[in-house]
Design a protein around this nucleic acid. Structure first.
Lengths: 212, 212
DNA sequence: CCCGGGTGTTACCGATCGGTAACACCTGCT
DNA sequence: AGCAGGTGTTACCGATCGGTAACACCCGGG
């Protein structure tokens, strides 16, 4: 039949993004929805509009693909932290609250499955896995960052408050896949705001104001 | 050689526990350390001192084994909640603090890997997985329980405080596999104690006292 | 004594997985 | 026209996985 060269130009469905990027994006979506160990490289390649062979031309192994994906997430978060500190220079409390806003926004968009990084840690028990090392290293940096903010904010017990902040973030993310609570995001922001407002006076003793 | 009936009585290495229990225990250990999808039924059977065939005489499938394991954990937690309410009858604040103590104690004994239930949720994205349903159902019950305690305690905003409590617990568990912080357990208890003490007066406005 | 239920052993199945080889193709550049 | 590099296609490999069949075994009870 004479359909030979009719739709020639849309045969390649408009890549628009380089192959490597497409693979990383597809991998990210599938890792997050199906679980890292629950999806195969073939399905990832297909979802990226390519094939396994090309995938292995860009990534040495599935584990390295996982690690690269994680690195992308971490890099993005790092950017966000920098943007945050630029936007609220000299206002550590503002940074903490703003960060909680951003996390809350992400939680609202995350149905069922929780934080990608936390899930990855759960799925990759091997302490030597490259992706795990990347995540842990980031978490340590993030924790130091939060601790520094808590010190700058003049909180009475910065270590404790930093851990409180960390627990709130991590806990809210974790609760998304437990319970379908819709208040999670709002309550997270509310609690961080109270934490920040509460610890303002150095002589005080409160961590979060729950009583009004 | 005449070693025929010498060590006959210890040939079966003293089962002491019925096969099914041994399988569940071995499965639990391996699921927790290697990840649910990271361990095979053969290795589980071997660790239980038996073999795959016997395992499949007690469990229809690996998924059902996972579900039964999860049911055991949930049943144990449910027992603990009951014990808690019996021990602190009429003292909801005492129950919350005591629960945080128990969680902290478990966290101290949990190297690297976090909560088994949270990890299982991360590893089983399928919303129809039997184990996932069990976990989610428990989490909802637990949340109701906490909410009820917060109401009985007379907190000003029981929903918010219940979520705070929940975030603290979930967050502390999640942080175990991120950072090797040794203060996690202590800080968790400290924060819950402040939360409880702080929200005592109905007219107040604090959630957690972070300032002293 | 034999019988029967619970257990161990071996071998096997089909499916899927991560990963590779070989080769055809298409496209743009010179 | 011809070359070269990036990409697609197919087939395949070995390993592992969940799950099953068939059969030997052991041990206690009638």
């Amino acid at each position: 039949m004479l359909e030979g060269d009719m739709t020639r130009r849309t045969q390649k469905p408009r890549p628009a993004l380089p192959v490597r990027e497409r693979i990383l994006i597809a991998a990210g979506n599938l890792f997050h929805t199906q679980g890292i160990r629950g999806i195969g490289v073939e399905a990832i390649a297909e979802a990226a509009g390519t094939n396994k062979m090309t995938l292995y031309r860009y990534f040495d192994s599935k584990d390295e693909l996982i690690a690269e994906w994680v690195k992308g997430i971490v890099a993005h978060k790092e950017e966000e932290w920098n943007d945050l500190s630029a936007r609220h220079r000299g206002d550590p409390r503002g940074q903490l609250v703003d960060w909680s806003h951003r996390v809350a926004a992400k939680l609202a968009a995350m149905e069922q499955r929780g934080s990608a990084l936390a899930n990855a840690l759960a799925e990759l028990p091997d302490p030597d896995h490259p992706a795990r090392r990347v995540i842990q290293a980031y978490k340590v940096r993030e924790h130091k960052r939060v601790l520094k903010l808590c010190r700058e904010a003049g909180f009475a017990d910065p270590e404790l408050t930093a851990n409180l902040f960390y627990f709130l973030l991590e806990g809210a993310s974790g609760c998304v896949q437990c319970i379908g609570m819709k208040r999670i995001g709002e309550d997270l922001v509310e609690l961080v705001q109270r934490m920040v407002k509460d610890a303002r006076s150095r002589g005080g003793t409160r961590v979060i104001d729950v009583t009004h």
